[in-house]
């Protein structure tokens, strides 16, 4: 079992950033976490760091975000993937329980591992972090 060392959280909700950080801490999950407010910032970051093998082990991705939403991020990510040294494990984590979104996530099989509905709890973390 490979340990997760780096994590990107892509979500436009700043409060969620704070809460998630604390949730990790309370559960004793020690991981190098970077927060992004939208897909665009995250994809730029991934592109910039592709040379130094710095892609994250895990990406937690929101659906509804300004500028570049979760779906657009996945499109962009699929484009840059061949240039990356490794593929990140991606979970979608959203407040949207719209079936359209949940079914759409299934279309990204091989890229998106699962779809979690907010709020995220300890049990969810256990599943996500025991790869």
């Amino acid at each position: 079992m490979k340990k997760i060392e780096s994590l990107y959280v892509i979500d436009d909700d700043k409060i969620y950033h704070f809460l998630f950080k604390n949730l990790l801490k309370q559960n004793g999950i020690d991981v190098n976490t970077t927060f992004f407010c939208n897909g665009s910032d995250a994809i730029e970051h991934i592109k910039e760091n592709k040379e130094n093998d710095n892609s994250p082990d895990l990406i937690l991705l929101d659906v509804n975000m300004p500028i570049m939403d979760g779906w657009q991020f996945l499109e962009e990510y699929s484009k840059v993937l061949p240039l990356l040294n490794k593929q990140s494990v991606i979970y979608m984590i959203s407040s949207s329980n719209n079936e359209v979104d949940i079914n759409k996530a299934k279309c990204y099989e091989g890229v998106v591992k699962d779809y979690y509905l907010k709020p995220i709890c300890k049990e969810d973390l256990d599943k996500i972090f025991i790869l």
């Binding site: 969620y16 809460l19 604390n22 949730l23 509804n64 407040s95 329980n97 907010k118």
Partner: peptide, 20 residues
């Protein structure tokens, strides 16, 4: 859907906050 999504995001935060 809008109601569900928008209220859910706040409710979700609230629940997470209380948990931690």
């Amino acid at each position: 859907h809008i109601v569900s999504h928008n209220l859910r995001s706040h409710a979700g935060n609230l629940k997470m906050l209380i948990d931690i």
